[in-house]
């Protein structure tokens, strides 16, 4: 009998142009990101993320997509600012949170590369939160969708709201994948088109800083973008193999994405974004 967490072998009759294992991932262009926060709002609305009347306690609010503001630490007029959207990295190699989960409530799906969370299985021990270096996991400290208050009318019917006392995280809008798959199945297609399944944040970004797709599929733009010399990942040297990539032409931004010993960081180019306006040049994305 095939077990649910089998690594998933390719089906014999499944003929695709690329490897049968999909590996959904994201590329976020930090040079384009304006820090408007639309991704956060879209994510919260799409995924029924709990919002309380008072959201000031930032260590206990839930933001699957979190936006960090980083600066190069220099004084005016040399100050530069960048915004750093941080969804779950959906680590591809031995995700730190998966192996520690006591109740098998979180899994890395080998067929899609998505790290899932089963809310009704989670016991709320929070070991996964302790193990995640990105702070991408959030605990439900409160009951946020009280019944009989009319809050349920604002909920998306595709995503289950979470109960108090469980951990939740970005799922790469997994329900959208399910929906796209159902549509493809109804149309007797075996493969999804590139834009057919994208996350809410990808769709909402007004400057199209976020690109989403199958990293294993050479036809998808993400699979080319990650080969860009400006591409990097957050805390890459820890070995978690994140499937979220970032692009930035600015060295200080790339340098802030990981820890480096003195002299370890090798700049890609020595010119900064301010100097050559690389990111605004047409044709950059056609790399």
């Amino acid at each position: 009998m095939k077990k649910e967490n089998d690594p998933g072998k390719p089906d014999a009759g499944h003929e695709t142009a690329h490897q049968s294992r999909q590996k959904y991932g994201m590329v976020i262009d930090l040079d384009k990101c304006t820090g408007c926060g639309t991704c956060m709002v879209a994510c919260a609305a799409e995924n029924n993320v709990a919002v309380r009347a008072d959201q000031t306690d930032k260590e206990r609010t839930i933001t699957w997509m979190n936006l960090y503001k980083i600066t190069n630490g220099k004084k005016f007029p040399h100050t530069e600012v960048s915004y750093f959207p941080r969804p779950c990295m959906h680590c591809d190699h031995h995700p730190p949170c998966v192996s520690v989960c006591v109740a098998s409530a979180t899994k890395l799906d080998f067929n899609t590369g998505i790290v899932s969370q089963i809310y009704t299985r989670c016991i709320g021990c929070r070991y996964c939160q302790a193990a995640c270096p990105y702070g991408a996991r959030y605990f439900n400290w409160w009951d946020v969708f009280p019944q009989d208050k009319g809050m349920d009318r604002y909920l998306s019917p595709d995503v289950s709201p979470r109960m108090r006392g469980v951990v939740e995280k970005c799922t790469f809008c997994h329900h959208r994948l399910m929906r796209a798959k159902s549509q493809a199945y109804a149309e007797d297609r075996r493969e999804l088109e590139e834009r057919e399944y994208v996350t809410a944040c990808t769709e909402a970004c007004p400057v199209e800083a976020i690109t989403f797709g199958d990293l294993n599929n050479p036809k998808h733009r993400v699979s080319q973008l990650i080969k860009h010399p400006y591409a990097f990942r957050l805390l890459e040297r820890l070995g978690t193999e994140p499937k979220v990539y970032y692009l930035s032409s600015r060295d200080w931004v790339r340098k802030l994405a990981d820890n480096f010993l003195p002299g370890e960081y090798e700049p890609v180019v020595n010119r900064t974004w301010a100097a050559d306006e690389w990111s605004t040049k047409p044709g950059r994305d056609e790399f």
């Binding site: 192996s99 520690v100 989960c101 006591v102 109740a103 098998s104 409530a105 299985r121 989670c122 016991i123 709320g124 021990c125 929070r126 070991y127 605990f139 439900n140 109960m163 108090r164 006392g165 469980v166 951990v167």
Partner: peptide
């Protein structure tokens, strides 16, 4: 008391993930 869903405490045993040190 420390776990968020004490009623599900038995999941640790029944749905044990044997790779977890906490199990």
């Amino acid at each position: 008391i420390d776990i968020g869903q004490p009623i599900r405490g038995w999941f640790i045993f029944w749905h044990a993930n044997i790779h977890s040190m906490l199990v």
